[in-house]
Design a binder for these strands. Structure first.
Lengths: 159, 159
DNA sequence: GGTCTGACTTGCATTTACAGAAGTCAGCAA
DNA sequence: TTGCTGACTTCTGTAAATGCAAGTCAGACC
């Protein structure tokens, strides 16, 4: 199958999964909430404080994210406290980990500060830092330029 | 080193590379332009048409992205035509490929349509589809829950 | 000189997002 | 019964983003 990039004009970019993904996790604060959630934050006030967004904005964001199925609002109760709710990642939300990791890798390389990264994700077994890398289904690592773009079943051809 | 998630309150989320990355590629249209650029689009009108954003917005977006170092504005000339400019990915821009790939993977899984994905990225050598996966520097694949979050040099402790 | 085209720019009008301050509400504790 | 605290909601003003329509500009071509 030819690389679609060779005739870029013969197909449409509608129905793009990247665009649909961006409709769900497309805003800055949504991504930062996801980062916090993946770092273990669960409670409203902590999200507000750590993401650095106002309470009204955070309430709206969390509501959207629950509606989108990224987070679940779960009641819990600490001894001597009333029932409260916390926000837990769903499977759908948890699977954004590669996206956030890739973003963190990129930020550490291309938007770094003098002080270096504030947190590092490491492999539990060996302690080495974790990165998002590209790999094909046959298990080969993908080096630069080794990717072809081919038509999928949902492709809309223009002619 | 302990997993920082165990005492989530002892450290601050300032100086986060994810946040800094989102300051650069944080908007929906920026990501869609990156996706297009990675698929081979180079010219202003094509970006406008394929990303589905108005000309003024696209002009502003491209200008920002050039200023941010994601794209380079390069003069070119087709025979019989006047000199024009096209937008080429820089190294910095190109290295967002894992982010876009992870996003595409996620979108294909969690925001799919009936028709299936419109395009598939495949490994040039073997034709198998490409995914973004997590791997540590020692080469181990990372399974679910095998990640620790530890303090990096830039961490701000709160106590 | 006039036309045409790609690549923008300018000007509005409108929507959307967000901050900040203040108010609400539930229920445990005193 | 009042206070307190976490988790919100409401209100208001402002700033940013985007769409649409129209205008500009450079240079090849006629």
């Amino acid at each position: 199958m030819e690389d679609l990039r060779d005739d870029r004009d013969s197909w449409s970019s509608e129905n793009c999964s990247v665009a649909r993904a961006m409709d769900i996790v497309g805003s800055r604060s949504t991504v930062l909430v996801m980062r916090e959630a993946l770092l273990g934050t669960r409670r409203f006030d902590d999200f507000v404080r750590r993401v650095g967004v106002g309470e009204p904005a955070m309430a709206a964001r969390l509501k959207e994210m629950v509606a989108a199925g990224l987070l679940e609002r779960i009641p819990y109760r600490e001894p001597g406290q009333r029932t409260r709710h916390e926000y837990q990642l769903t499977q759908k939300g948890h699977e954004l980990l590669p996206v956030i990791t890739a973003l963190r890798n990129w930020g550490d390389t291309w938007a770094a500060t003098d002080t270096g990264p504030s947190v590092v994700a490491t492999h539990h077994d060996c302690g080495e830092p974790v990165r998002a890398v590209l790999r094909c289904a046959a298990g080969h690592d993908i080096a630069d330029g080794e990717i072809d773009i081919i038509a999928g079943p949902g492709l809309v051809r223009l002619d």
